[in-house]
Design a protein around this nucleic acid. Structure first.
Lengths: 163, 163
DNA sequence: GAGGTTTCGTTGCGTTTGCAACAATCTCAG
DNA sequence: CTGAGATTGTTGCAAACGCAACGAAACCTC
């Protein structure tokens, strides 16, 4: 069950030791830092990061945007976004507005309260992120980002299945 | 809201651009590869990775083990593990056996079916992991693991809050 | 423009999660 | 021994999730 040093060919059945180590570290560390930041937000009475992300995506878009145009950067499935928006709308953070070009969908737009919340959250999110990542220098962080992006590919998007 | 190139001092309020990039990449890529592997397992009719991990931890321990001795490597809270074991026990994969030294707890032990399942899962898990990580060379994977471990610290364990 | 296919987004339902409260046992000081 | 406090693990409940099925509009082909 332990490591198999050399693979006969690419895509062989047992990942190398290095790959296994990277895999394990990726799972543990990402969860650890993610939870760390989420916990700080929660402790301060803020909603989860996904709410922030939706608000930020909408704000960055600068105009009412359809759900499917947000889904990709969010890595979530349509029905997840649908319910997320339900909750955010119930809290008065976003509005669904009718979409004239396409009768199926609608546009999403943050309310003033939504803008305000995002900004407020950033006040805590930013330092929390800094805190979670503080063990890396800028150079190391850049190196990490490069490796991760190579691993993931920029395009490799779906969390939904793809076969 | 964009990048702030230089921080006045460590732990400043706005993370550097490099840190932000690393943070984003970490969230996206880890989720992407994790989901990728989980989807392959699910599609083959296997249970989630957490089941594998429990079985593997127990098997590696080589003897009946108490839940609290598994919790740390699993990064999960006691009640999560409790219910996870409920389900696994219901499927006949692990047994709870009475613990003589401590009347509160119990020992966990995989059943033969549990051993068999873990082995069977590895047959798919291993190549799936290799597939998910195939864009990195061994050298890059090692580099990635090193950076991640530095970021997370080996000891920095809890997903539960720690303050 | 009728009928099939695809896309967009939602929903019903059963499962899983998170939180806070809890029982039971252990530990240890006095 | 006794009672305060800590540790171990579970549970009730409400919220959130995953999946598959769905309605509705768009698209496309004939």
């Amino acid at each position: 069950m332990r490591l198999q040093q050399s693979q006969l060919k690419t895509g062989s059945r047992i990942p190398s030791d290095a790959l296994q180590r990277a895999w394990i570290a990726l799972g543990r560390v990402s969860q650890s830092v993610q939870c760390d930041v989420e916990n700080r937000l929660k402790k301060a009475g803020f909603p989860e990061l996904s709410w922030y992300t939706v608000l930020w995506e909408l704000e960055r878009a600068g105009k009412p945007t359809r759900p499917r145009d947000l889904a990709i950067p969010l890595f979530i499935k349509p029905y997840q976004l649908s319910r997320l928006v339900d909750r955010m709308e119930a809290e008065g953070l976003v509005k669904r507005i009718q979409c004239k070009e396409d009768g199926r969908g609608h546009m999403l737009e943050p309310t003033p309260k939504g803008f305000a919340l995002r900004k407020e959250m950033w006040g805590l999110y930013a330092p929390a992120m800094g805190e979670a990542m503080k063990k890396l220098s800028d150079a190391e962080a850049l190196q990490l980002a490069t490796l991760l992006n190579k691993l993931g590919g920029i395009e490799h998007v779906d969390c939904a299945d793809k076969s």
